[in-house]
């Protein structure tokens, strides 16, 4: 019987400092056999461990179209993520997964207009799908990426944001909650970007990730723009210990975020018990 709780070593190939509190780690399984048999789907997550410190669920921020490595964009928040931030290239972390039956659609959204709305550390999980789309760009219509952070130095993937914006029919719109001297763009919450972006629901699907308060207001905005619940797709986050539907922590109603999600349509999330605070 396979023991799904045992993680495998992965070596860090590169580290990119995205912002003052977020780094992207590119890793590779050290065991070639495990690496060769490994595959994942956009929107899935892994359990990342440092033995002796602990384990946490982290979404995969790289695209499955770019093979041979995995990327995790991690904000330093708790005990484990602080330790992960101290790691250097050639050092190891331990990973297991991928997890999540609920992932982002790909084939189903070909030929559609796509809107991405992210807040803060919410962009990394969406980036897995964004780069998959960029690698198959001709199969999709307009792509708009709306991204809000507290301050300008919090933006992740700064080079990619510029690169995506240069791709035809692709637009990246940014906003910050708090203006700093070096910021000349929009100030305000992410829904303020509705003023700059022409958001239409025709033949369109929206993808969201961000704090619950952002999700709540963005869903209202999207509904105001005519989006139906099934065309609003979001990836959720919960405290998790196992990733495989046993420890109970991420249970919401009759679902486990780890096994049944973490990606759900807004229609599914609306069926969650209100008290579980999904939105």
């Amino acid at each position: 019987m396979k023991n799904d709780y045992i993680p495998y070593p992965a070596v860090i190939e590169s580290i990119i400092t995205e912002s003052f509190d977020t780094k992207t780690f590119r890793v590779k399984f050290t065991d070639k056999k495990i690496a060769d048999n490994f595959s994942y789907v956009q929107g899935q997550f892994m359990q990342i461990s440092l033995m002796g410190t602990g384990e946490a669920p982290i979404s995969i921020s790289s695209s499955p179209s770019r093979k041979g490595f995995l990327e995790f964009s991690i904000r330093s928040v708790g005990k484990l993520t602080k330790k992960i931030h101290e790691l250097k290239v050639r050092e190891k972390m331990f990973i297991r997964g991928p997890y999540g039956k609920g992932h982002f659609p790909f084939e189903e959204i070909k030929g559609k207009n796509l809107i991405f709305v992210a807040g803060g550390i919410g962009l990394p999980p969406l980036r897995s799908l964004i780069n998959l789309i960029m690698d198959n760009r001709k199969d999709f219509e307009n792509v708009k990426i709306l991204y809000g952070c507290k301050t300008a130095d919090e933006f992740c993937f700064k080079d990619e944001l510029k690169a995506w914006n240069k791709i035809p029919n692709t637009e990246v719109l940014l906003t910050v909650d708090k203006k700093t001297d070096d910021w000349t763009g929009r100030v305000g919450v992410v829904t303020e970007l509705w003023k700059d972006a022409d958001i239409k629901s025709d033949n369109a699907v929206a993808f969201l990730c961000g704090p619950p308060i952002m999700i709540k207001f963005v869903v209202q905005k999207l509904e105001g723009s005519g989006f139906s619940d099934k065309n609003i797709i979001m990836t959720l986050e919960r405290h998790m210990k196992c990733g495989i539907g046993k420890c109970g922590h991420c249970n919401v109603g009759d679902k486990f975020i780890c096994v049944d999600g973490p990606v759900f349509t807004c229609a599914e999330v609306k069926k969650f018990p209100k008290k579980d605070g999904a939105m």
Binding site: Y5, M51, G52, T53, G54, E55, K241, C242, K246, C247, G248, H249
Partner: peptide, 19 residues
């Protein structure tokens, strides 16, 4: 009831992960 927490403990370079 089945819920559990997971934690790590280390002593002298030897460690355990427990639930």
């Amino acid at each position: 009831c089945t819920c559990f927490d997971v934690f790590d403990d280390v002593k002298c370079g030897e460690g355990v992960r427990c639930r």
